[in-house]
């Protein structure tokens, strides 16, 4: 007898179909993808060197190779005639010009300039890297810790569960933001310390989810039969149980990335985040405080970027939550 095809293409395809149907969530995914591409390609989008420079002396690719004869040359000036193709934003994020400070957006600087005459568009584009990078690495770190700890507690139960549950409770009671601030103030703020601190304090939510799913699955028939067939603990945990616990973990990770980006920008705002000259949105916003009464572009643009990024991740998380729901997977075909 042929089985009725309830979910054509399987569970994943059904989840994806469901997700795509949710316009807001799909829009969020598009924004997230665009941000990731921007972060990866930042030096190609905003740079003061041209992709290609053709002069009488030859053909150069200053952005990709270090040509010794063009070292320190500003190819944008008229002193270098010839054919040039520049990136869309022809400024590097650290390049400053003190004769053009705090200028509103114009054709030359599409997002204006900051207090040191640096191009804001270029700093925003390079700042994407910090937000995206910190979000991914910190959350990856705590998802890994959470999965291992939660799996141990949920799979073995008993004493292991008791010890781990207490540990989770202790970490959860930490005043997290204050703790992060203390660590960064005492040990020195840096990209690495921000990521590590968020990573080691954030895992409790994931651990609780995984623990709960494992507790529920532990007595399931297919797990008992896998064990009876001689599968080792490692195999049962990672190939049989973990895939079933992943959907809620993924949803939680998406919300986690959103809140990590918020924490990072708050820390940068207080001066404890990524240190200059590395451009970060929170830092740009923090610097803008001195000119806030007239330089609206320095406040609105980075703030809006943080807001859009957080919203996009939250929308993706929310959409995934709906899409993973087994009821909606089957019924909303």
């Amino acid at each position: 007898m042929e089985k009725p095809d309830i979910l054509p293409g399987g569970y994943r395809a059904a989840v994806w179909r469901n997700f795509k149907r949710n316009n807001l969530a799909f829009g969020g995914l598009c924004i997230v993808s665009a941000l990731i591409v921007t972060a990866i390609l930042a030096p190609l989008i905003a740079n003061n060197k041209p992709y290609i420079y053709v002069s009488e002396k030859g053909v150069y690719f200053p952005l990709f190779f270090n040509h010794s004869e063009l070292k320190d040359a500003d190819l944008r000036s008229g002193a270098y005639p010839g054919f040039k193709i520049f990136p869309p934003v022809p400024y590097s994020p650290s390049e400053y010009d003190l004769s053009f400070i705090v200028l509103p957006p114009s054709a030359k600087h599409i997002m204006g300039t900051d207090e040191q005459g640096r191009d804001l568009a270029s700093r925003m584009i390079h700042g994407t890297r910090v937000s995206i990078f910190i979000g991914f690495i910190a959350v990856f770190l705590y998802v890994m810790i959470g999965i291992v700890v939660g799996a141990l507690a949920g799979f073995y139960g008993g004493k292991a569960d008791m010890v781990i549950s207490r540990l989770i409770e202790i970490v959860m009671c930490f005043p997290t933001f204050f703790l992060i601030l203390t660590i960064l103030a005492l040990w020195g703020p840096s990209l690495l310390s921000v990521m590590v601190v968020i990573g080691i304090t954030g895992w409790t939510g994931i651990a609780r989810i995984v623990r709960g799913e494992f507790m529920r699955l532990r007595e399931a028939d297919y797990i008992v039969s896998a064990k009876a067939a001689g599968a080792g603990d490692f195999r049962v945990i990672f190939t049989h149980m973990l895939p079933n616990a992943l959907p809620p973990v993924l949803v939680s990770a998406m919300f986690g990335i959103a809140s990590t980006i918020l924490i990072e920008s708050s820390l940068s705002f207080l001066g404890f985040g990524v240190q200059p000259p590395t451009p970060s949105w929170g830092d740009i916003l923090s610097q803008s405080r001195d000119f806030i009464d007239f330089a609206w572009w320095l406040t609105l643009i980075p703030g809006f970027a943080i807001f859009i990024t957080i919203t996009a991740y939250n929308l993706v998380g929310d959409g995934l939550q709906d899409a993973f729901d087994p009821k909606s997977v089957i019924h909303r075909r």
């Binding site: 959103a258 920008s265 708050s266 916003l285 806030i292 807001f307 957080i310 919203t311 939250n314």
Partner: peptide, 27 residues
Amino acid sequence: SLLLFILYSLPSFWVALLLLTYLAGGE
């Protein structure tokens, strides 16, 4: 629910900064 979602995603330090600039101080 969309409105609340947007509010939820607004970074509070940014909102605080904007409120202070535009509603307080007299600028």
